[in-house]
């Protein structure tokens, strides 16, 4: 009986027992996996080719140096994607028969760039367009890498935005329009600000995907992190540089993934908290005289 009073001051007997069991079973499972891996016949070779300490420490600063290219790609494309994605979502939500061709074009765009594999778009634009030698059209591989990623990801992001816009209750639009706000003003001041807040977690999720897909542009010959790792790998026939590259992406992505979780949780808590404060305010209201 006394144990049930425990939880007020720490874990208590039940909680401590659960924690012990969790720690124990985790140690056993990981221990068994490690023993099996280390004792398998291929382990020494694997260790030599994938987990090579000296190669790792030599490769890490080099791949990190080239990672800056990926970061630039990511950051520039990111901004363009946010703008183009929102524009597409707004175009698709334009009402009335006059805007049918606009809606159709936006829909075709989104369908097309979601359907075509990214690497195809990157090849067609990155190799194909410069090969046409049209005067005034850039030949820079980095430029076409940014364009490809922007076209591909803005299609996804516009769908995220659109889901957000459609999740805003029609009564919000009715209230805004009844004040005399135009359709565009209603979107700008009422619908989009609420929609964007709702879609931040799924947007972050798409950006994790974009971060990783920046390595696809290595096929255009842009020497970024993956290409650099490839150069290091073939020089020694050792895959540890790839492992170092993978580690860089994990380290960069994990905070984003956790941030997404935190934001989702906060939104959930926020709804509960505001619901609670509303009834608290209502209670307070009762005890006050009418104005």
């Amino acid at each position: 009986m006394r144990a049930t009073r425990g939880p007020r001051f720490g874990l208590g007997a039940e909680g401590a027992r659960a924690l012990l069991i969790a720690a124990g079973s985790t140690a056993v499972v990981f221990g068994v996996l490690a023993v099996v891996a280390v004792n398998s016949s291929g382990w020494p070779l694997f260790q030599e080719k994938f987990l090579n300490g000296p190669v790792f420490w030599e490769a890490l600063p080099k791949v990190l140096g080239k990672f800056w290219i990926n970061v630039q790609l990511f950051l520039i494309a990111e901004v363009l994607i946010l703008v183009l994605g929102l524009l597409l979502a707004v175009l698709r939500s334009l009402p009335g028969p006059v805007f049918f061709p606009v809606r159709l074009l936006a829909t075709l765009y989104v369908d097309l760039f979601r359907a075509v594999p990214g690497i195809l778009v990157i090849f067609m634009l990155g190799f194909g367009i410069p090969a046409l030698r049209i005067p005034g059209v850039p030949k820079d591989q980095f430029f076409w890498a940014v364009v490809s990623l922007t076209l591909l990801y803005s299609a996804y992001v516009s769908e995220v935005y659109r889901a957000g816009i459609e999740s805003i209750h029609p009564s919000q639009t009715a209230a805004a329009r009844s004040l005399g706000l135009s359709h565009a003003q209603t979107l700008r001041y009422v619908v989009v600000p609420q929609a964007v807040r709702r879609v931040v977690p799924p947007l972050l999720n798409d950006f994790i995907g974009l971060q990783k897909d920046t390595v696809l542009v290595s096929f255009l010959g842009v020497v970024e992190i993956f290409n650099e790792a490839g150069i290091l790998e073939s020089a020694r026939f050792n895959f540890t540089p790839y492992l170092a590259t993978a580690l860089v992406f994990v380290v960069v992505t994990l905070p984003l993934a956790r941030l997404t979780d935190v934001l989702l949780q906060r939104e959930k808590n926020g709804r509960i908290a505001s619901g609670g404060s509303r009834s608290a305010a209502a209670m307070q209201r009762v005890s006050q005289p009418l104005p």
Binding site: Q172, A176, S178, L179, G180, P193, Q194, R197
Partner: peptide, 21 residues
């Protein structure tokens, strides 16, 4: 122009419809 008309007519809804943001 419906926007010009609407600014002359106020409406209040059952469910308030304030802008929460």
């Amino acid at each position: 122009n419906v926007d010009r008309i609407r600014r002359r007519i106020g409406i209040v809804f059952q469910s308030f419809n304030l802008f929460p943001h």
